[in-house]
Amino acid sequence: MSKLSVIDNKRCVGCQSCMFACSRRDGNAGLSNSCIGVKSASGIEGDLTVVVCRACADPPCAKVCPTNALIPKKGGGVRLQKTKCIGCKLCQQTCVIDAVFWNKEENKPVICIQCGYCVGYCPHQVIKLLK
């Protein structure tokens, strides 16, 4: 399977186009449904960090889910079964790279499905879908 990867975070200009793209997958505007994040390490004057799900082979987020709402996928990463999720945030707390994002409106995690839609909107080739 393909995996979303950060090729060079130093090329990132912080325009957030990837974040908006991710949220726009379902057709709406805004940012609530985004599961890619760009943050500054120490203000805009410092380096920017791009946070994407690494699609772990043995995903810690799935291991802590009390309702088995996060189902490990073949080849890495997880799939969210929304109807099972109780919004306890354990998955978010467990991910050490903060790649489990949170949709406050639904009170559920937003999980990257490695679709690569964001890649098409990065003007500076920071991210890529790798086989």
């Binding site: 726009r24 709406n28 505007a29 805004g30």
Partner: peptide
């Protein structure tokens, strides 16, 4: 804040978005 913003027509929205994005880039 990072809420959702509703649009009237999802397809039209995405098409118009792409048009502006391409011009901008």
């Amino acid at each position: 804040g990072k809420q959702t913003l509703q649009v009237t027509n999802k397809k039209t929205y995405k098409d118009l978005y792409d048009r502006i994005y391409k011009e901008a880039v």
